[in-house]
């Protein structure tokens, strides 16, 4: 029982990080129909900022703020420089553009920083663990769950209570009519990227705080997982992204915990088979987006 609870905490922690990443992808996809493969590099940027801040001896709380801020600014710049010129192009063109952005950034990290993994200094508190309800939980796991909850509450508030958030939902449903209302295409898209950068930044801090290192390809794996989560939940659906993220986290952690040792090698394929089974039953995902068509601006 204790083991199960322990693994459940791990699953919520990992699933929450996937959920934040999948949300960032979904926000952008729902508004402009772009699947942003360079989302992972936003994470990597935040990771390097954490590393440099650690080397500079900045307090960790300040480093976190700078890392998240850097990912947010980078996301807005990415839109302005790379995606705005292809905004009205086909989905395939936008997808290829995002691959290009991703690769350019990876090469820059490799050449300007290092090809190899770099250690990130973390406060000792993060690697501590606490005893709760009779079992041991890592502080980083608890903080990660808390951060995810705070972000989800913030996002829900923003999307429902803030004019800009409501406009994003409106634009995701019918961009042409949203423009008729006076909602500016440029600002709503820039806003969506800023939000996705913010989410990637938070996810990066959580990711790095579990691993204490950063490398040029750091963002690739988690964002690939987040894609799977977003599709599992229903591409473009925000609630779906959260559901898909958590479900994928649970699948991965429970497989790692309960598969017999001789099967562990096949953990990822088995996880993906489970995802495919879910999609066979619900082809549009767990909570499909209301409008599957992405309106062009």
């Amino acid at each position: 029982m204790d083991f199960f609870l322990q693994q459940t905490v791990n699953a919520v922690s990992l699933g929450g990080t996937y959920a934040l990443l999948a949300l960032g992808l979904a926000v952008v996809f729902s508004i402009m129909g772009l699947i942003n493969f360079a989302h992972g590099e936003l994470m990597t940027i935040a990771g390097y900022v954490l590393m440099y801040c650690g080397l500079a001896g900045l307090p960790f709380v300040l480093s976190i703020g700078l890392a998240i801020g850097a990912a947010t600014v980078a996301a807005v710049l990415m839109e302005r420089i790379a995606f705005r010129p292809v905004r009205n192009a086909s989905g395939a063109t936008m997808l290829i553009t995002s691959f290009a952005v991703s690769m350019v950034l990876q090469v820059l990290f490799q050449n300007l920083i290092s090809v190899r993994s770099q250690p990130v200094l973390l406060p000792p508190l993060l690697t501590d663990s606490v005893r709760m309800f009779g079992f041991v939980i890592g502080v980083n796991k608890l903080l990660s769950i808390a951060a995810t909850v705070v972000m989800l509450i913030f996002l829900d508030w923003f999307m429902k209570r803030q004019k800009t958030g409501i406009a994003m939902r409106a634009a995701a449903e019918d961009f042409a009519v949203a423009r008729l209302m006076g909602i500016r295409a440029n600002s709503v898209i820039a806003g969506a990227f800023a939000l996705s950068g913010l989410l990637a930044g938070v996810a990066a801090v959580l990711w790095v705080s579990q691993r204490a290192s950063v490398d040029p390809l750091m963002g690739f794996t988690p964002v690939l997982k987040a894609f799977i989560a977003a599709i599992l939940g229903g591409l473009g659906s925000l609630r779906g992204a959260v559901a898909g993220g958590f479900l994928l986290g649970f699948i991965e952690i429970y497989l790692a915990a309960y598969l017999p040792p001789e099967w562990q090698e096949f953990r990822d394929p088995i996880g993906l088979v489970l995802v495919v089974i879910v999609l066979l039953i619900r082809p549009n995902g767990l909570i499909p987006a209301p409008a599957l068509k992405a309106h062009k601006v």
Binding site: I166, R169, A170, E173, V177, A178, P290, A291
Partner: peptide, 9 residues
């Protein structure tokens, strides 16, 4: 906007 409330519309 179907997914927005009347007031939000």
């Amino acid at each position: 906007f179907n997914t927005l409330s009347v007031a939000e519309n």
